[in-house]
Amino acid sequence: MKKQILIILVAVIALSCGENKKSSESSNSEMLSGTIQVDGSSTVFPVTEAVAEEYRTEQPDVKVTIGVSGTGGGFKKFSRGETNISNASRPIKDIEIEACKENNITYVELEVAYDGLAVLVNPENTWVDSFTIEELKKIWEPAAQGKIMKWNQIRPEWPNEEIHLFGPGVASGTYDYFTEAIVGKSGSSRGDFTASEDDHVLVQGIAGDKYSLGFFGLAYYTENADKLTLIGVHNGTEVVKPTLETVSNGTYKPLSRPLFIYVNSTSVKSPEVVDFVNFYLNNAGELAEDVGYIPLPADIYKKQIENFKTFVESNK
């Protein structure tokens, strides 16, 4: 009986190794064990979760746990040395770098995917075909509150109707990113718009109101493409709509952002962390697409892998 189980086990392991050709270059042939603690952004969470899930078939004894304290909360733990890897939807801030230095934590920053922000209107809206950054700024900047209330204030040929704005809650990274890219200052915008932490509410709001305008993560648009109209944004040379291609090659500017993981130097002394991060970088492209994000170009992944390799060597 025991022998049979052993044979089945060996067969399963052999099979799973054979199937995962794409990852074989990163994985050690030996079986690893240990725990890897990841915390941080809830935006990056789905990517890391997908990687952890696939990694389970590769190294079943390595236990990867993921928290969702938010980018800032994650860095707080990371700078205390409480986590191995931090998920982040923005680069680390100066004050967080200071905190890491105080605790002698050195780290490497790795890009894992892109997230696009989509600007959307109701499908019955026939007049808008594109926005420029200036127009979006005119609509969303703090000075617009109570003043820019009608569509024809943006372009005179647009209807003399009230404009109804929808956007993510002010505590979200998406809101921070949008205001930074459009208004120029993170967290600064008009206050008289319908804000919701639940993007499904925004989808409903825009889909049910002819004179609405809103923004949120591209993944929510992809899931609700039949109820919404995606509007292209002028990037300085041409009007671009966010797609897999335009976000990935960087022409959809400035409303696409990279997502990061940060790995600390003490953690890369453990082989399971090194193996996991390599597995992450080798598979992030495909898995990011699975969960609604956009993969980096292949050469950028290559560069991340090289960066990580040098980081590991320098901390041996």
């Binding site: 809830s42 969470f45 979760e49």
Partner: peptide
């Protein structure tokens, strides 16, 4: 945590709970 691939086996293990899992799923597109 929001993602734990194992059930706790001692009181010192890390864990997730149903409301966190629900919260996490609701925010997915």
């Amino acid at each position: 945590l929001a993602y734990v691939p194992f059930a706790p086996s001692t009181p010192m293990d890390e864990f997730s709970v149903l409301p966190i899992q629900i919260f996490n799923w609701i925010s997915r597109p």
